[in-house]
Each structure stands twice: as C-alpha cells, then as structure tokens.
Nucleic acid binder design. Structure first.
Lengths: 259, 259
DNA sequence: ATAATAGTGTCTATTAGACACTATGCG
DNA sequence: CGCATAGTGTCTAATAGACACTATTAT
C-alpha cells in the first residue's frame, strides 16, 4: 500500500513526520564504440573497442575520483527527464536511446546521506561524442575502455552499476536491435558482426552472412539498402570488393524459449 | 555526476539545502494463477485465470480505492528489502521470486508529495496465497482477475504500474522459465502449456509436446521426472491416460536474434 | 601476385510444421 | 461407446552448420 504506517491518529499524511531520502540521483552509463583504423597496406576493418564515459569529481565525496555522469532529480521532472537533462548538460548529447535499468539503494552507498540512485544506460555513436568533446575540451570528461574503467577505483558504487550496465547491454545486444545505435544508417554485415563482437566478446557465428540474409526467421530485422532507382547500394569502405549495405527494419522479433 | 549543482561556496554537500523527495515507496504486483475444476463428468484440466492481489486503502489519499500492496522504504534497508518486508507484512508470503522492473516518478503522481515509487512483481503459486488468506481473513485484501483489475479505478498510477508489470511478466514468461513459479515441482506438459497460455493469451504452439521434448535447442530446459528406481513418473491427475511428469532443469537458455 | 574482405556451392543431419492417427481408462 | 487428455507416424520443406571454394580490386 502506497502509504506510511503508524499514523492512525490523523487523516492526512505528512512527510515531515518521517525520515525521507536526501536525494534521488540518476546515474548514466554512456557506452560508445571507438574505431581506430589499422595501419595496414590495404583497406581493412577498423579496430573497435567498447568505451564508457566517466567524469572526474571536483568535490567531496570522492573528490578526484572518476564517476559516472549524473545528477540529482528536481521535483518538477521525472527521473527519466532528469537523466536526459544531465546527459545533455554534461556531454551535450541529446535525443538518444536512453534506458532505465536498475535502482541502487543499499544503505550507506552515499556518504552524503540516504540516496536512492537510478541508473540508465545510453548507447551513442562515437561521432556524436568526439564532436562534442572537441567543442568544449572538457578535460574532466573522458572515455575509458570498458575493461579499464572496471579496474578504476570509481566513486560510490559506480563500479557495481557499471558491471550491471555491461551485463544488461550485452543481453540487449543479442536480443534486440540496439546494435543500430552504434552503427550508421547503412552498414555492411561485417560491421554489424564487429559491433556485436565488441560488446559481447564470446559471440561467434560462423556463416553469419548466411543466417542474417537467408534465414527465414531472422531476415526480417535487416533489409538491403537501395538507392532511388532501386539498385542495391554497395560499399567498399573496408575492402576492395564491394559489399552489400544493409539497414535495420522496424521489426523487433519476439523471442521465446518455447519457440 | 552524483552531486548536486550550485554549491560552489562550500566543500560539503548538505541535503538541507535542496528540495528532497518526500518518500521512496515500493509497490508490488503479486500475480497468481487461480485454478478451478471444471464440473465435467470426466477428469479434465482445470480452468486457469491470471489474478492480481490488491488491497483496499483505509486512508487519504484514495481512501476506499483498491491499490497495489506496498509501503515506504526505511533508511536502513534497500528498496528490495523494503519490498520483501512489505510483501511479507501484507500477504504473509516470503521467499519468493521478486523482481524489480521500473520506477515511477512523474511529478504529481502522489498527492502526498514528491514520491518516487519502485515497482516489483512477484509470481506466487496460488496455494501459498489461499492458505495465507484463510489464516487472517483480511477482507481488505483480495485477488482480482487481471483483466478486471485493469478496469478498476486504482489508486495513484497503479493502473499504469499494473499494465507495465503485465507486459513484463508476459515477456518473461516466454523468455525465461518463470512458469515454474506457477507450477508444482513436477507437472505435465499440458499444465505448462496452460500456464503459458493463461499469462500470454496469444501464445499458441501446435505440436508443443514435440518441440518441448524432442527439439535439440529447447529440450535442455525440461527433464523427465523419475522416481528412486529410475522409473519415469507419470500422473493421471487430469486425464484417464497417464501423462509423463516433467521438471525444470537449472538451465536458462540464452536467446539471440542473431541465433 | 597478394592482402583483406565478400560471398557461393554443396553436403548432411536436424528441425519445423502440418495433420491424421492411435492410446488410455473410465463412467 | 464416447469423452478428454496423451502421445505417435509420416510426410515435406526449411534450416543449421561445416568447409572448401570463388570473387573483387587497390596496391
């Protein structure tokens, strides 16, 4: 029941009579995939690495530590709006895939008081981040390789939050089409494969092209990119031979263990 | 960043300087499947119905309305512990599958003030609820058919929470083995099918027995129940002919759209 | 020619999916 | 016998999965 207990003698609830939380922060785990071109003689696929955005704290507590971006919710906004606002304020990134995934409420998790934190994750194409970072040159905001971030002494319970976010993103990567968040509108099968592999290292599908293109049950999620005159669009960005470009459809497959 | 903005002049954060939430409630959506025997001449499968537990509010606000069970979090417990405690206090049910699924924070959702509510769902075998309800005869706690509950003028935004919970449970029913929460340890394929159907009305698998028993990719989740001497256990609870009993294994299949 | 990626041919065992059929046991 | 559930036979088309093979093209 959405009511406090123990106020038998009055008809009206008053928050003043109870110990209430000292704040409702949102923390945001921003993932991106950084690409770096291999210096090989021939054209080749870039090296890709999963990275996460951290900010350096300027104040007590955890002054000087790296932390997830985030901030406190105001009374006139929802937690989701709070997360969007803070993301925009701290990274300049807006209008992106932002997903709520967990609450963190262990007593003592924040030395400032009783703070129940709400965690979101976001997947951002690296171009949107690099542009922004170049713009305001914020030296206290940095991208870290995910593996490296997990080794840092992060502020609060942000290491736990990051671990949970990673687990969730890996699951989502395989069960939904969020891979599109890391990819351009049109992409090659190799790029898609690489993105999945970058987020989920144990992912392996031999004959991936076969499955993705010719399997009845899966092919609904992708379609061949075509130009105005209906010709199939190709790219030789990463290879000598031209490769078919694909795009995600709006179809979201429903998975079931009872198939 | 997990810190409030605008306190440049002090090194220490103080919650007293900010507007803070007036409470952090947890709301719990308790689902059960009620079985009722059909009065037919022969043995037959029971009728099953998805039900949800509601409590009648005794106080302002929404006095007299039906609401989800729940209550306020204390400073010395996590939201999860709060939900477990409230569930135990209000229904006597403990040690069950309880899962966090969303936060509700729209400004104005609670007339008592700024309340950010945390929603859990629980799946409970009906025997655990009927026993309990018989015990304390709480007339202000009732099970409603899910469809009926959605038509009631529920307190707060509990209708929205219930809708979201239903959606989540339906998804989970098809992608995880939570069906086990509604079933006895050992069950027949028909029972399993019926449970899935009850929660997800559009579920339909012809040849369900075939798939569940002989499909390589799916058969890992179930195993035949056997007695001490290795004989296969059968049941004629619902039919003249004996049916094989099954049990869930500990295997949780990993689903993927890229299969 | 070679590197690096893109894509095809071909084979076998397994699966999906349909639908009709048999099995059980009791009132 | 007929009811209600349990389960099998049999067929076809589709699929998975492996592996070797060919294709493309700038350097």
């Amino acid at each position: 029941m959405d009511a406090a207990t123990g106020d038998e003698n009055t008809s009206r609830y008053s928050a003043a009579r109870y110990r209430t939380p000292d704040g409702a922060p949102a923390d945001i785990v921003i993932f991106t995939i950084a690409s770096s071109t291999r210096n090989s003689a021939k054209k080749s696929l870039p090296l890709r690495e999963l990275q996460v955005m951290l900010v350096e704290r300027k104040k007590w507590p955890y002054e000087g530590s790296w932390a997830l971006p985030g901030g406190f919710c105001n009374e006139n906004e929802s937690i989701y709006e709070c997360a969007m606002r803070e993301l925009e304020e701290e990274t300049g990134v807006g209008g992106i895939h932002l997903e709520y995934f967990n609450v963190y409420s262990e007593p003592g998790r924040d030395p400032r008081g009783w703070m129940i934190s709400h965690a979101f994750f976001a997947l951002v194409n690296e171009t949107r981040l690099t542009n922004r970072r170049a713009a305001d040159d914020a030296s206290d905001v940095r991208l870290f390789p995910a593996a490296e971030a997990l080794e840092l002494p992060l502020a609060f319970d942000h290491r736990l939050i990051l671990e949970d976010a990673l687990e969730r993103v890996r699951e989502k990567m395989l069960t939904t089409t969020i891979a599109r968040q890391f990819l351009p509108e049109e992409f090659t099968i190799s790029e898609l494969y690489q993105v999945i592999e970058t987020v989920v290292p144990e992912f392996e599908e031999k004959n991936f092209i076969r499955k993705i293109t010719s399997t009845q049950s899966r092919k609904g999620i992708l379609e061949e990119a075509r130009d105005g005159s209906g010709e199939r669009k190709m790219s030789n960005r990463y290879s000598q031979r031209f490769a078919q470009l694909y795009r995600f459809t709006d179809f979201q497959p429903k998975l079931s263990i009872y198939s």
